[in-house]
């Protein structure tokens, strides 16, 4: 079995700061990490490898420094890693990104057919959840998003059974390979890298593919040209017309502050006590 896991290197968004004057992102010193959602998919792939035997290829599109994300994946136990990197990809939106990744997967298939593609549910920087479905559509794979567990895999029948999170419940789905799966967060825990895998990751001869190597001929489908969406404006949120009324009192004791707040609030919003009582009833 051959599994491809698509991962992305993202800035650790918890540490992103915005320049107060220019409203631009201050990237200096923000560590790059493997998109946390991708790790649930990578771990699911590695578990299938443990149980059924598989070659796991990780695929990443990004700048040359995204190599670190792929080495990380190798250290967890992935077999191969390919970085698709080209200036021509700059400015790609989700449609252009799924085009590039789908082309790369087709190229990977020339070497060995792919049975399952995994992608992250979404990224923590884009948060769109669109690239997985996009790749599936382009490669005509069965799409299985928000998967909470893989119940069964029958490689002879080429059938897979899994649980998919729906809004009000869980769908138990059965489908045929090849398919694309995005795992729900919290459904597994990434294993620790073993010492031999860490050594392997450090020495691994990473493959770097430019657009030609990834089999992309039509440059109008990638980068800014291949992106229907246009970012017309980036801005910091407006402060509300009125700032919060800061509660203060002479004693500055918590008890007095709390009472002052409630008195003020219930005078201005006389219905609120009734609302609270209703919730409590």
């Amino acid at each position: 079995m051959h599994i491809v896991v698509c991962i992305k290197q993202v800035p650790d968004s918890a540490q992103i700061r915005v320049h107060p004057v220019t409203n631009t992102i201050m990237r200096q010193g923000v560590p790059a990490i493997v998109n946390p959602y991708d790790l649930f998919s990578l771990e699911a792939a590695l578990r299938l490898k443990d149980e059924y035997g598989a070659r796991v290829t990780v695929l990443c599109m990004g700048p040359p420094q995204a190599e670190a994300a792929l080495r990380k994946a190798i250290s967890f136990g992935a077999d191969d890693a390919i970085l698709v990197t080209d200036r021509a990809f700059a400015g790609s939106d989700t449609l252009a990104t799924s085009f590039a990744l789908a082309s790369a997967i087709r190229k990977i298939q020339e070497d060995m057919p792919v049975d399952i593609v995994f992608a992250g549910k979404q990224t923590i920087d884009g948060d769109t959840a669109q690239v997985g479905p996009g790749i599936a559509k382009r490669l005509d794979l069965q799409l299985l998003t928000y998967v909470s567990s893989i119940v069964d895999l029958d490689l002879d029948k080429r059938e897979i059974t899994l649980h998919r999170r729906a809004e009000g419940g869980v769908q138990v789905l059965q489908t045929r390979l090849p398919c694309l799966i995005t795992m729900l967060e919290g459904t597994n825990e990434m294993r620790f890298a073993t010492m031999p895998n860490m050594f392997r990751a450090a020495r691994y001869p990473l493959k770097q593919w430019d657009k030609d190597a990834a089999g992309i001929e039509d440059v109008s489908k990638i980068g800014l040209k291949g992106s229907p969406t246009i970012v017309s404006k980036v801005f910091a949120p407006q402060a509300k017309s009125q700032r919060a009324e800061i509660i203060d009192c002479e004693s500055k004791e918590p008890k007095d502050l709390a009472v002052t707040l409630l008195t003020k609030m219930f005078t201005k919003y006389p219905n609120l006590p009734e609302e609270i009582a209703k919730v409590n009833a």
């Binding site: 449609l95 669109q130 479905p133 599936a136 559509k137 809004e167 229907p228």
Partner: peptide, 18 residues
């Protein structure tokens, strides 16, 4: 979960922005 699954597939099929 439904809307995002569907929107991503439909936008890719129609080759439009989402």
């Amino acid at each position: 979960t439904l809307g995002r699954d569907l929107a991503g597939s439909v936008a890719t099929t129609l080759q439009t922005g989402l």
